[in-house]
Design a binder for these strands. Structure first.
Lengths: 155, 155
DNA sequence: ACCCTGATTGGCAGATTCTGCCAATTCAAT
DNA sequence: ATTGAATTGGCAGAATCTGCCAATCAGGGT
């Protein structure tokens, strides 16, 4: 990966629907080598995909909650069971395995506090092996930066 | 917004580089009304944009940290100053204003723990008005779902 | 049941873009 | 300088985009 690849990645993070011609112009190549580089980045896995950004509030899901979860025990079985259960919950947008006192960390979306309460009571707490759940509510999103800093390998 | 719009949004969340023809076929329309709907969703702001998903580890930024921040006072001035400062930090990928004991919640990326420490010491703590900082480290991402549940207005 | 109106759709066609192939160029190492 | 591998630019047929127009559809009022 070199400077041109980095430019490609930066440009596509800001607008994944750029045409190959536009992209080529931005990074200073002609279209065909530019397309080849994009394909290579895709094949290598660095470019994992392209996704539309949705305005959650306008879409109808204005509530964002961060949830810390602790398991009763960290056996292999309990971990796998929990992670599998989480995959099936549509409201869970992201899930991280954490260091420290909390085991998992989730970002959950919902249309209202009522719905979120129902989600916790009827879905989350039904998962086996959960010791505790702690919810933190977001007022709003202050920043969402679709752009990573340059990787250390570039400098 | 109706069922077709929802299909469009779902499809574009999974692959934002679908051609209009492919998208039209998926949602069961011919290309031209499909394109019109996409434009309308863009104009309305529901479709905020399209971004490439990057594999952070392959890219060279394997460390993800969630940071809770408390301000000394919640005056209008302090809040604005903090939010402005945050906008300029490339390492901060997301920032939320929170309810509860913590004021802000950040997702920060870094290439190593050393770099992260430097980031905290040389950048974060230099921002005026911060009372406390608490870092939680992620081992890895267990789930990343590029798909929202159907909005309540559809059911 | 009928008509009327506004919204939505499908098809068409010129303009644009994509993308595989090949020759030319660049660059690094000897 | 010379060689060879990697990368590039240009080309052209195929595919796609996208604005326009007529046809269709939904549903409200009489």
């Amino acid at each position: 990966m070199n400077k041109i690849d980095w430019k490609i990645i930066t440009a596509l993070q800001q607008n994944a629907r750029l045409t190959n011609q536009e992209l080529a112009q931005i990074v200073g190549l002609s279209p065909s080598p530019c397309l080849r580089r994009v394909r290579k980045l895709e094949d290598s896995g660095i470019l994992r995909g392209y996704q539309a950004q949705i305005d959650q509030t306008l879409y109808g899901l204005p509530v964002t909650v961060f949830v810390s979860i602790k398991l009763e025990r960290q056996t292999d079985h309990a971990i796998r069971a929990f992670e599998q259960a989480i995959q099936d919950l549509d409201e869970v947008q992201e899930c991280y395995l954490m260091t420290g006192p909390r085991d998992y960390f989730l970002r959950v979306v919902s249309d209202s506090l009522q719905s979120y309460e129902r989600f916790v009571r009827e879905r989350l707490t039904r998962i086996e092996g959960i010791a505790s759940i702690e919810s933190s509510f977001a007022f709003n999103q202050v920043k969402q930066k679709p752009r990573l800093p340059p990787p250390p390998t570039l400098e």
